[in-house]
Every structure is written in C-alpha cells, then in structure tokens.
C-alpha cells in the first residue's frame, strides 16, 4: 500500500520549486558550461578548454577594468564598513533617541531609491559642484550605496551582543574606549567582516550607477562586459562572467559562514 501523502503537501508545488531553481540557475550554469567550450559553436562541444579565460585575461582592456573594479571595491567597502560600524554603534546601543527613525531611513535610503534615480542624481550633483568625474566619484557613489549592505550584518551582530560584556569590561577597570577596543570590537568582528564582504561584492557588481558617474577612460569590469555585449557575444564574455559569478558566490558564502559563527 502506498503511504498517503501528508496533508501539508500540495501536488505540483515541488515541480514548481524545481522550475524556480531551474529559472534561477540555468542561465548562469549554461554560460559557465559554454565558457569551457573549446570552440565558438553553440551547438557542438569542442572539448574542455581554458583558452577563453586565458584570452580574456590577456586583454589589456579587461586587465585595466579588473584593476579599477578591485580598487573601487576595496576602497568603497572599507569606507562603507567603517561608516556602517559607527552608525550601528550609535543606533543599536543605548536607549532610543529622537530622530532614530530618521537616521534609520537615511541609512537605508540607497536601498529605497531606484538605482537609476540615484545614478542621475549623483551625476547632476557631481557636475553641479564641479567634481571631475572619474575613479574618485565612482568610489564615493559606491561607498554611499554600500553602507546599508554593510550595516545589516553589523547591526544584527551588535544587537546580539548583550550589554553586560561592556559592563564587565568597565567593572574590570577598562575605560569606555578600552572596553570598546578590547571587548566590543573583537566581539563585533564577525559581523563587520560579513558586512565588508557584502559591501565588496555589491560594489564589484554595480553597473547602473558606475555607468553614470564614471569619467571617460575609467572602466570597471561590469562596464567592460556591457561594452563587449553591445558589440556581440563572444566566449570571452562567458569566461569573465563565470569568474565574476564564482567571486560573488565565494564572498557571499564567506560572509554567510562568518556572520553565522558563534562568538
């Protein structure tokens, strides 16, 4: 006799779930597979090859874009993490204060405003104040929209740390600064690290805002990919996409694992 299905199981739901997973993963997996195809063909498999990776990374244009992307991502994620850590300390510690809601909205503002609106607003602003568009404007823009992403894991971590640890530190003759430096900050570290990782990939990924606020000659990796796609598909694009995909998955997993780690 067949075991009757539990009443909580609906027919078709598992199939839809698999469809959902297929939709989410099929395109990027297809691209990853084709990046290893030795020949250009879509319909035939010419054997496994890393030739497209070699070709992509020998391209000086790609090299320059990669360097720019890394410089921007490191600078913006570090700056955003510092800003977010300070904000988390002000918001998640101590009793509520007037204006707390307003500050909270301000931190999350970059998430609420559509990217394209942020992009053109920043463009207008930089030009209005006579700021030369270039790597610096890109770093500033990235720092702004990375703050909420960095803030989230840091604030979550901080609100999970009981205040009695700081009490204990002060009871044991540490002043406020040293109680922060030797007790609270080390305990916050996993959250800060997770925030840094998220900010890093968010910066690495951005296209729309970078596209608007960058100056002539300053290209990041997503901009380079976009430029190449406009010309036509080439297996090199698949190779770069696969690398960026792996970088994202790596940093998200790292952020997830570290953020979850117990103190």
């Amino acid at each position: 006799m067949r075991k009757p299905k539990p009443i909580s199981a609906y027919p078709g739901f598992s199939q839809v779930t698999w469809l959902c997973m297929a939709l989410l993963y099929a395109p990027i997996l297809v691209v990853a597979v084709y990046s290893f195809n030795a020949i250009r063909s879509i319909t035939t498999w010419g054997g496994f090859s890393l030739a497209w990776y070699a070709k992509a990374f020998a391209n000086p244009h790609i090299q320059a874009a990669t360097l720019n992307s890394l410089v921007v991502a490191v600078a913006a994620s570090v700056a955003a993490t510092v800003i977010a850590t300070a904000a988390a300390l002000a918001l998640a510690r101590g009793r509520g204060f007037r204006g707390r809601g307003g500050v909270f909205v301000l931190i999350n503002l970059p998430l609420m405003i559509p990217e394209i609106v942020t992009a053109v607003a920043m463009l207008i602003f930089f030009l209005a104040i006579g700021f030369q568009l270039g790597l610096l404007t890109v770093v500033i823009a990235h720092t702004v929209f990375c703050v909420p992403f960095a803030y989230l894991p840091i604030a979550a971590r901080l609100s999970g740390i009981e205040t009695f640890y700081e009490d204990a530190a002060q009871d044991l003759y540490a002043d406020r600064w040293r109680s922060f430096r030797f007790v609270l900050l080390p305990m916050m570290m996993p959250g800060i690290f997770a925030g840094l990782m998220l900010a890093f990939i968010i910066s690495l990924d951005d296209f729309i805002i970078t596209n608007m606020v960058t100056g002539p000659g300053t290209t990041t990796l997503p901009l380079a990919i976009y430029g190449m796609v406009r010309v036509g598909f080439s297996p090199e694009i698949n190779a770069i996409s696969t690398v960026m995909l792996l970088v994202s998955v790596f940093f998200v997993s790292l952020s997830y694992l570290v953020g979850r780690r117990r103190a």
Binding site: D167, Q170, D171, Y173, A174, D175, S179, F182, M189
Partner: peptide, 27 residues
C-alpha cells in the same frame, strides 16, 4: 565603574568569549 575598587560577578558571568580563561582573568 572603572575607577571603583569593586568588582562584579555577573549573573550570566559575562566572560569575554573571544578571550581564553587566562586572558579573562588577566583583563
């Protein structure tokens, strides 16, 4: 608190989780 010659044993101990036992005692 850090200028008072009194010390506290906290209800939930409040041992610093990132330090060893010796480092906690030495803090």
């Amino acid at each position: 608190p850090h200028k008072r010659p009194v010390n506290t044993v906290f209800q939930h101990y409040a041992l610093f989780p990132h330090m060893t036992v010796a480092e906690n005692v030495a803090f």
